[in-house]
Structure formats: structure tokens, C-alpha cells
Write a protein that binds this DNA or RNA. Sequence first.
DNA 1: CTAAATTAAGCAAACGTTTGCGTTGGAAAG
DNA 2: CTTTCCAACGCAAACGTTTGCTTAATTTAG
Lengths: 339, 339
Amino acid sequence: MEEKFVTIKDIAQKLGISVSSVSRALHNHPSISLKTRNKVRSMAKQLGYIPSSPAISFQRGKTGTIGVIVPKLSEPFFATALSAIENIATQRNYKILFGQSLDTEEKEKELVESMLHHRVEGLLISISKKTMNYSHLDALKRNHLPVVYFDCIPHQKNIHYVVCDLRNGTIEAMNYLLRKGHRTIGLINGPPSLFASMEREDGYFRALTMKRLKIDRSLIVSSDLSEAGTINAIETLLAKKKPPTAIITFNDFTAIYVINHLRKTNKYKKDLEFVSYANMPILKFMEYGPSASVEQFPYRQGEKSTEILLDLIQQKNVITSEPSAFFKVYVETQLIEKE
Amino acid sequence: MEEKFVTIKDIAQKLGISVSSVSRALHNHPSISLKTRNKVRSMAKQLGYIPSSPAISFQRGKTGTIGVIVPKLSEPFFATALSAIENIATQRNYKILFGQSLDTEEKEKELVESMLHHRVEGLLISISKKTMNYSHLDALKRNHLPVVYFDCIPHQKNIHYVVCDLRNGTIEAMNYLLRKGHRTIGLINGPPSLFASMEREDGYFRALTMKRLKIDRSLIVSSDLSEAGTINAIETLLAKKKPPTAIITFNDFTAIYVINHLRKTNKYKKDLEFVSYANMPILKFMEYGPSASVEQFPYRQGEKSTEILLDLIQQKNVITSEPSAFFKVYVETQLIEKE
DNA sequence: CTAAATTAAGCAAACGTTTGCGTTGGAAAG
DNA sequence: CTTTCCAACGCAAACGTTTGCTTAATTTAG
């Protein structure tokens, strides 16, 4: 009744040969005759032998797994990214150990530790938005573990990362609105602490500077990205003596919150235009939504970061005296206009 | 330069004591004096010791991981479910090994095998929609691996599963439409091979039977769930001499495809009512969408199935002669009406 | 003051697999 | 008939950790 897994030892015993021969037979080692090889194979099948990855990992010192840490999987961006990560990893015979930080520094720390315990061969991280202290990430460097950050990256030197070029994305978005004649453009940004917020703001300024237009800082308001916080933000903007005629919002949902609020309070005007980020697929079916959205290609980001990570792992397995170069990949955004 | 992980052997050597003492010291074993215990702890910290999970897993024959296989993570349902799975698993000190079948039987087979290799202690599977042959699942039974299926389950006896009660969900949806006066209700279903399709159909019939209304089988059409296939389906329905006044669609996206198509071809009528399944959060912000949607609680399904699985794993570790009972959990759906 | 009990530690086996090296037996070469 | 060579296989160590059993030193009891 007590089920135990069959080992090569069992096969060896049944066949009256040594374990090393069994091991070699299963790996098609040339020094094993075809006859025994076949005997071993059929006995393995008969007994239902399943090789033990833990034992193999242990003995070779390699686990064949990479760790992935994201804030929250229920965010479509990360779900899509993880989907891509799994695809690439599987293609290259790696398995995924997965964890979510839920945007807390503590859980992120625990996860990183746990990944180290499990001897993942590399780590893909999109860091928590609340992470201020990077000491747990330093531990990774000490252990020379290949790490690639994506989307949400720490403010550190000498790291590999893959991100969207949101600054340029924002410039594109601004140019789109400027081209359509808007001259008073609002920006409902995320929390100022976020790197993503800084990039949007930066792009916003750049676009105006490039066109030699003057900058009104009060057109930038910050939201905590909740529905209530966003409604607050839009009210602030519209209360201005000269309210914006177009607004860039932190993401699609932010835009939708705003538009929904305006419609409910009868303040909605068809000529108030919105541009947001993320380009959710559902967007093109929405009657009242942003007229354009900045596509961030989560799938590509996942793919690219995984490829880099796996390359780094491979590279690590060959001796090299070269000082390592650091990859900084910027995935081009694309402004998707609603037909 | 060649970084090797510090082992308890290293600690033992530095301190001139045995490895067993180090191991016990780190586990606060009573037969180790406080003095050596402290010496060991500080030396471990100083050398940067990180316990090797692979070694521990190997030696104890337990990996502390569960496997999760879903068709596609980019589907929000599975992303949300996996999010819940990870939460529960982490709470109970289990790690997640993750893979996607991409709705192909072959990949699913490979994944199941790989999970067996990795000696996961249990498996959570939502099977591929194209899986017809269950031989790879039988292998799991042979190895007495606890398995809980969720959402998409195989047509087999003696398995544990967690699903939504879509039959009742459909009855609820039907009653909602009947209450609103509709008497000719269409059903755009998914592929007939899907269990989920059968349940919808079953509920559809039941609802009509319960109200002693007559059944018109031609009001049920099947779609491959692509946009084109769905458009085909709606056209079939509307071409009838007595077209439906309300339609239940396989999911939210199906409904949206249909509505979008009707609006584009100027066939949209306000009184043609839609009810769908999934209740995507964005739905309540859509001007033209289903007027109600069947919430399937992916998060709860993920939670529940993980809890059951972990309980099964624990149970397995205590000797029991009782024949195992099989859990069949039906998560109640809820019809969410648009305000 | 000896015997028993207790405390603190060490020894060694075990987990499943891989792999360098050693050992056979027989065939080919001399 | 030796010697050499090769094919085919076995031996044993190693990977890092845990744990049952043993041992040594110290304390307590009688």
C-alpha cells in the first residue's frame, strides 16, 4: 500500500546488474551493449520508473528552474508576462518557480530568500511598488545569481533589466494630442514614488519643451490609482480656471474611472479627449474610453527578459574572465489609436 | 571567483565540530548546548550560509512544492485562480511549480510528466480543452499523487474537483431573462465537446422544463469562441423566422463580439438582451454589453482547490486504512446584474 | 566512592543519481 | 601461445542534509 517510487537501484537488482550500468543504459552511454540497454529500458517501463529530478538536481548541483517574482498575478500585465516567461522557459527546458510579493517589501524579501533556498539558477523580478530597501537584492549579487528585472525595476546601478520606454511612449502620446490641436493637456499620474510615474512626467515635459510650449505644472495631478483617488484627481483638474482639453491617464482603468465619473455626473463632454497606457484588448469595444492607449507589450517584455536570463545562466556555465556587461533593454511602446 | 554555496560542512570545519552538531544546532535540537548553538549561528551568518532545499528535499523525500497546470495564463480566469493558489500555498509553506498546456494534449502530457519528475507533492490541473485521452492522468493515479482538478475537469470517476455550478448558473440566468418577459431565448454555446458547454445546455433545458415552456433546439448554436465564429453564430440565430429576444453567450467576450458586430452592421436593437458568463470587472463600465453576467469566482475556486489539495497531502502523510473519499466542490455562481 | 543518569557531542548510514576509474573476458595482433 | 586491445560492465565516491545510535564527559544519586 505504501507507494514508493521505483529507483534505478530497483531496476539494477531485478536485472542483476549494477546501478551504474542502469544509469548509463538509460542515457545511451556507448559502453553499454544494446542488449542490456534494451533490457534496462523495458524493465524501467515495466516497473514504472520515473527519474527523480530532486536527486539529479542535488547530484549535479543544478536545478533547472528559474524563479519569477511579480507583485500581483491578477494584474493582466503580469499574467501575460508570466505566460510568455513560461513559454520561453519551457522551450529551453527550464521550469518556473513562481511567487507574488503582493506589493509588500516583506513578502518580496521572503520570496527572494526562498528562491535562494531552492537554488533557482536565475531570477526574474518585477519589484514591489513599495520596496524602498534593496538589501535583499544585494544578497542575490553576493551569491552571483543571474537576475533580470522587468517592468518595475530597482533604482540601482549594474543590473540587467527590460522595461518599456515610457518616456518616449508619453512623448508619442503627447504629440498625438498636440497634433489634434490640444494645447492644455492634463496628466493624471500615479504615485510620485513610482519610477513609472517619473518617466511619464519626464516625457510630458519633454514633449512640451520640444515643441517650445510652456509648461504648467498644475496640470499634473497624482492619483493613488484607486477609483476614488482618481475621481479626486480629475475634479482637481477640471476645477482649474483653464481646464485641460485632453488628459493622459496612468492606465486604461484610470481613464475609464474618470470617464465613468464624468458621465454619471453629467460633466462628460465628447471633445475632452483621453489617452492612457496598457491598451487592454477590451478597449476597442468600449463606446466611452480613451481614444488612444500606449501598448506596453507585456508578452514581449516577458519573452525578452527570459531570453536574457537564460543566456546569462548559460554564459555563467562557461569560464570567462571578461567583466560582465549589463543589459538594458527598452521595449518600444506603440500608440494604438481607436480606429 | 568561482562561487560555491556554503554548506554545513564548511561551518563544521571552521568550528572544528561535526556536521551533525551543526545541523542540530541550526534546528535548535535540545542536545546541543547554548554555547555551540550560538557559535554555529553566528558562523553561519558570517559565512552567508543558505540551506540547500534540493539537498533537503532529496534527503527527506519531500519537495514542498505543488504543481499547477492551466491552459493559458493570459486568460484572466486562470491568472486570478493562480494568484489565489499561490497565496494559499505560500501561507502553508508550499511552493508553486507552474506550467501551461496552451490547450494542447501533448504539452499537457509533457507537463504532467515533468511534474512527476520533479516530485511535486500534489497537482492542481485545469485540463486542456482539447484533451480527449486521459492516459497521462492515469499515471498520476498509479503513483498515488494527490490531484485536484478545477474549472476544466476530465470526464472521469473517482477524482477530486472544484468547479462552478454552471448548470445552476445557467438556470439563474434563464430565470432572470424569463422574469423579464423573454420567451425566445438563444444560447451561443462553446464547442460541444466541452464539459462547460454541456452544463450550459443542460441548465438551459432545465430552466425551460421547470417553467413548462417548450424547447426549440435550434435556438442553441455553437461557436469556436473566436470573433469570427461568434459572428457566424449570431447570424444563424438572427436569420431564424422567429429570432430570439434575448441571448445567453458562452462568456463576456462572446457577448461583446456579438454586440459589436450588430452595432457595426446596424442591426443592434436596444431590446435584444444579453447575459454572459465571467463578469469581467470592466463590464460595469461598458455602455453596450451584457445586462447581466454569471460570476464564477475564480479566486475562490483557486483557494478552495488548493486547500483541498494541501489537506490531501497532509492526510497522505498519516497512515490510514480508510478508503479515500472524493471531494466534489461546486462553487455557487452568482448572477450579477448591471446596476 | 562507585554506579547510574544525564548532557553534549560524534559517527555513519541513508536518500537517488552520476561518473572517473578499475576490472573482467574474449578477440585481434604479434 | 603470449601480449595487447577493446568492449562491457562493476566499484565507489560524491553531492548536502538528517537522524538513529554510540560515545565521552560530567553530574547526580545511592
